Simulated assay, not measured.
Amino acid sequence: MSEFLTNISGIVPVAARLEIWASVALIAALGFVLGFAMNRGSICTVIATKELISEKRPARFIALIESAAWAALVYAILETAPMMHGRWSSLGFLVPAAILLGIGSYVNGACVFGSVGHIGNGEIEFAFTFLGIYAVVYIESLFDLFADQPAIDAAPSLGVALPALALLAIVALRLGVSRRSGSNFRRLTLAMGVVGVTSTVLAVLAPGFSLTASFGPIASIPVAGAVIPLSMFGGSFVSARLRKHGFMLRWPTVTTMVKRTLAGMLMGAGALLIPGGNDTLLLIGLPAGAWQAALAYVLFVATIAALVVKFGSIARAWT
């Protein structure tokens, strides 16, 4: 299906063009639903880590792992192996890259998921986060620093039984801690299920795509590379508009624009070296059972946690 997307402007039969537009519409719809869920569930690793460290509330952090279990289950049901751009870096690159990704996310005040949610809330300054990310990956593409890195299949997905059991265990654990912390269990359950399912289907339809991946896969799937982020932002915006007091347009200052751009550049640099941001680690690497993804995500979270302990954080959920 992804081959159709690269030829959308070509001269093709009417039936093929209809299939192309149907594919584009499906990808747009999935991206919209994904962005809607990110905003509605206040899904962000920085927020989850801050709640875990400062408020002793682990529910939101557990929910992030839950999204990985959902993704693993969908891959198993579809009998498809997760696909990522290039191979995992060696430890010499992976470790500092994960730390760099954590520093950038902390400075930004939100990870990639959280930035999508903030934009939907009207916080335009977070658009500069993605400007910084794409500036880095565009520069990488100009110099071909990671040339000849096509999308590859990761390790085969696990059978249906194991991810299903893991998912039930994670949900049960979160239910237990939610009763004590007052977390909105139902909303998070629905949001994480939607994120895990829609992101996996999108990964199957547009192999190699990631919000923080190298410019290569975005250039190789130009339609999907543009439609998915735009539809995600649209879904996040609609979600915020539907919530009472959920949307308030905030114009950025020069200081915040510079801060978000620099933070995005740090996040983009880390994602290039891993390769992939927290979206790739959670929704592709962990479902594939890659130890590199597990290590990178632990280091990413540990970096944010250390910075929260040292300097504190004003990051907070908006629902």
Rank of each mutant, 00 (worst) to 15 (best):
M267V: 15
T261L: 15
T212V: 11
N39H: 14
A28S: 11
A271W: 02
R187A: 14
L26M: 12
L145R: 11
A110T: 06
A213D: 04
P287S: 13
I274W: 03
N7S: 14
A22T: 09
G182F: 13
H85Y: 06
T253I: 08
R250M: 12
V95E: 02
V74G: 02
S42E: 05
I47H: 01
P82W: 05
V227H: 07
V171W: 09
G35E: 05
P82V: 03
L165G: 14
T256L: 04
W251K: 15
I119N: 01
L162H: 04
V301I: 15
L158R: 13
W251C: 05
R57D: 13
T319Y: 15
M38I: 14
L26F: 03
I304Y: 05
G102H: 04
F93Q: 05
L273E: 06
Y106V: 01
V194C: 06
V309C: 11
L190D: 00
I139D: 01
T319C: 07
V195Y: 03
E55D: 14
L282T: 06
A81P: 00
I103W: 04
A48V: 08
I170Q: 04
A290V: 06
I124N: 01
P252M: 12
F126M: 10
W291C: 00
S199C: 04
V177L: 10
L5G: 12
I218K: 06
I11Y: 11
G122L: 07
T80M: 10
N108G: 13
R243Y: 08
A161R: 11
N121T: 07
I20M: 11
A72T: 01
E3N: 13
F130E: 02
T45W: 11
S42V: 04
S105L: 05
L188F: 14
R17N: 14
P222W: 11
L101S: 11
S89M: 05
L242E: 08
A48Q: 05
A15R: 15
A315N: 10
V204P: 00
M84S: 07
G289H: 10
F146N: 08
R187P: 01
R243N: 10
M1P: 04
G285V: 12
A306H: 09
Y297L: 15
E79Q: 13
G216A: 14
F143D: 00
V95Q: 03
V107G: 00
C44K: 05
I11C: 05
F61V: 05
I152G: 04
I65Y: 14
V301C: 13
N39M: 08
V95Y: 02
F32M: 10
V136R: 02
D144P: 00
F233Y: 15
V107F: 09
L131D: 02
G182W: 12
S67Y: 03
L91E: 08
G176N: 12
G182Q: 12
L91G: 03
A151E: 05
I43A: 12
A147C: 04
I228P: 03
V74E: 01
F93Y: 10
A76Q: 03
